[in-house]
């Protein structure tokens, strides 16, 4: 008989332009991953990748939804928004490219490192985007 895989699911709403609570979803996910005793470097990679995606949804897309599913050997983090979409993903992936508004830049955002940072810290990253409809970023982090 095949055993069902036990997973832990977390879900968070990301509010648009909410700079005060920005990063809370990532912070809570980090706590959940730490509690299960994962290697701190794995937890940090997941938290940083999720933080960048969370901030992108908050700054660029009027908010979105974060869904996290923790499997025995990996975690899948999905951030979905109904924002403007990304017209040129290759350009957006270039370090330094940013369309952040001035208010975000004044707070230290807009370095154009968001997507490159996700790619750097994730074991796998997928971007599904349709201009005018939204973007979904799926991040896989392996535990070993």
């Amino acid at each position: 008989m095949r055993m069902a895989v036990q997973t832990v699911k977390l879900s968070f709403q990301i509010r648009g332009s909410d700079f005060v609570n920005a990063g809370e979803a990532s912070s809570n996910t980090k706590k959940a991953l730490s509690r299960i005793g994962l290697n701190p470097s794995v937890v940090k990679r997941a938290a940083i990748a999720m933080y960048e995606a969370e901030l992108n949804a908050m700054i660029h897309a009027g908010g979105g939804q974060a869904d996290v599913e923790i499997f025995p050997d990996h975690v899948v983090i999905q951030i979905a928004d109904r924002g403007p979409g990304i017209p040129d993903v290759d350009l957006a992936m270039q370090a330094g490219w940013s369309t952040a508004p001035d208010i975000a830049r004044e707070m230290g955002f807009g370095a154009g490192m968001g997507l490159p940072n996700i790619k750097k810290h994730a074991d796998d990253m997928r971007i599904e985007t349709i201009v005018g409809q939204g973007t979904t970023i799926t991040i896989h982090i392996l535990f070993a």
Binding site: F19, V20, A22, G23, S26, S27, K30, A47, Y51, M107
Partner: peptide, 10 residues
């Protein structure tokens, strides 16, 4: 800003 707290914590 408060974002400094988030980044420092993470």
């Amino acid at each position: 800003s408060v974002n400094v707290v988030a980044v420092a914590t993470l």
